[in-house]
């Protein structure tokens, strides 16, 4: 290899930072599937303007597939929050001295816990409000012409069962 070789990235030599280095790459691979899949379902297959409470309820409480979506969303939130806040921590570390790094590390990990807690609570503790759904039903029928041109969007079973 000549002078053209650009060399490897700087990989941490061990410990916590090396663990997070591998975590960023492994969770990143998982998130390519989870996050891009989530965006594809919500923004391409569906129209975001039709997403409402009834839509969320029909997804998470669908009789046979509800647990899959909850598992998907819980995995997505957990990995994405850790990945995102660890990325923020790494960016901040580049600009901070030792004292500031302690603060930044503590704050980012605390926020990681808060947002995984909030997100996990929403997903796992969700109970549909049947009365509200009756008054504000699904809006999926009037999605864009793109989807009505093909088969009508295969809405999740509209009968919301627990």
């Amino acid at each position: 290899m000549t002078a053209r070789s650009t060399g490897r990235r700087i990989r941490p030599s061990g410990g916590y930072e090396l663990f997070m280095w591998y975590f960023m790459r492994l969770s990143g691979l998982a998130l390519v599937f989870l996050a891009v899949g989530h965006l594809f379902i919500m923004h391409i297959l569906n129209n975001v303007e039709t997403i409402n409470y009834a839509f969320v309820a029909s997804r998470w409480t669908a009789p046979r597939t509800g647990w899959i979506w909850r598992l998907w969303d819980a995995s997505l939130i957990s990995l994405a929050v850790i990945h995102g806040f660890n990325g923020l921590r790494q960016v901040l570390y580049e600009y901070l001295s030792a004292g500031g790094r302690i603060v930044a590390g503590t704050v980012t990990w605390a926020l990681t816990a808060v947002f995984i807690g909030a997100g996990g609570y929403s997903i796992l503790m969700f109970q549909p409000d049947e009365g509200f759904i009756k008054e504000h039903p699904l809006k999926i029928e009037r999605t864009t012409e793109i989807s009505s041109a093909s088969a009508p969007p295969a809405s999740q079973p509209i009968s919301v069962a627990r």
């Binding site: 997403i51 409402n52 409470y53 969320v56 995102g84 923020l88 929403s122 409000d129 509200f132």
Partner: peptide, 30 residues
Amino acid sequence: GLGILFFLIVHITDTFFVVFAPDWYDHTVA
């Protein structure tokens, strides 16, 4: 990455409304 993290924070917060205030959720996503 930083932009996605910002959106993620907003998105987790708005989705948190589904567990205790369905009308807040609908008004927000509207």
